[in-house]
């Protein structure tokens, strides 16, 4: 989803940067709140950022015969909320723009909007809706990871279509063209991202209960229930599934 350096007209580059700025600033503010409020979850926050680092470095082949990469923003979104992801995602994009010639400084605003703002917002919304529909944490995390990833690429397609409307079809015609490059390629990769996100959430539930409880991602079962878990019932039964 990286729009290459100089590949957005000046007006669009400036515009997207201006749009992304307030989200970025709010994200920094939220980041400080999170660090102050959940001091024990700092390492988990760093891990969510590291998760973006790993996933966005992996270019995976897709059925359309081209390669693309997941975004990794779904995990941090479901744990810490979407606003925190704006600075974290932008940091990764800046690294890639400066050292990997992927994306660019002029297109950083547009790329940050798609990956660090639009993707997390959609992921957060999907997570909330799936939890309301009584989906388990794993299923909700899968859907959030998948849809957040896909939404990122749809946003990029829309950004490019806005900048380069088709001579015949206008914005819609161009959106279909860019969409066919990004969105279809991304379907299997988005599913991969969803699966990996759900996998990590599952690992966190098994190994990182104190942090998740602190974030009220899960609720600690009362002691009697814990005692029950040591008995004959399966541990699954006791895994609390009350969302935030």
């Amino acid at each position: 989803m990286h729009i290459a350096e100089g590949f957005l007209p000046v007006g669009h580059a400036v515009g997207w940067t201006a749009v992304s700025m307030p989200f970025f600033a709010h994200g920094i503010y939220r980041l400080r709140c999170v660090l102050r409020r959940y001091p024990n979850s700092r390492l988990l926050l760093a891990t969510s950022a590291a998760f973006i680092f790993v996933l966005s470095a992996l270019k995976l082949p897709s059925i359309t015969g081209s390669s693309s990469h997941p975004t990794g923003v779904g995990l941090g979104t479901v744990l810490f909320g979407p606003s925190v992801m704006a600075p974290l995602g932008t940091m990764v994009l800046l690294f890639q723009a400066l050292l990997l010639a992927h994306g660019g400084l002029t297109t950083l605003g547009a790329n940050a909007f798609s990956m660090a703002i639009a993707g997390p917002c959609v992921a957060s919304w999907v997570f909330g809706v799936s939890r309301k529909c009584r989906a388990s944490l794993m299923v909700a995390a899968f859907l959030a990871g998948t849809m957040g990833d896909w939404a990122t690429y749809l946003t990029t397609a829309a950004q490019l279509a806005l900048a380069f409307p088709d001579a015949a079809g206008g914005f819609a015609g161009s959106f279909v063209k860019f969409g066919s490059v990004f969105a279809i390629t991304q379907i299997p990769l988005a599913i991969v991202e969803g699966l990996v996100t759900a996998l990590v959430v599952d690992l966190l539930i098994s190994y990182s209960r104190p942090e998740l409880v602190e974030l009220s991602f899960i609720k600690e079962p009362p002691d009697e229930e814990l005692a029950d878990c040591n008995g004959s019932r399966s541990p699954d039964h006791c895994a609390p599934c009350h969302g935030p």
Binding site: M1, A4, L60, P61, G65, S66, F178, Q186, P188
Partner: peptide, 22 residues
């Protein structure tokens, strides 16, 4: 999901989608 495309689709170079957009 990652390996299947390599086996299923032949004669393509799996170029980056970013370049395709360019």
């Amino acid at each position: 999901l990652t390996i299947a495309p390599l086996a299923m689709v032949h004669n393509v170079r799996f170029q980056g989608a970013d370049n395709a957009a360019r």
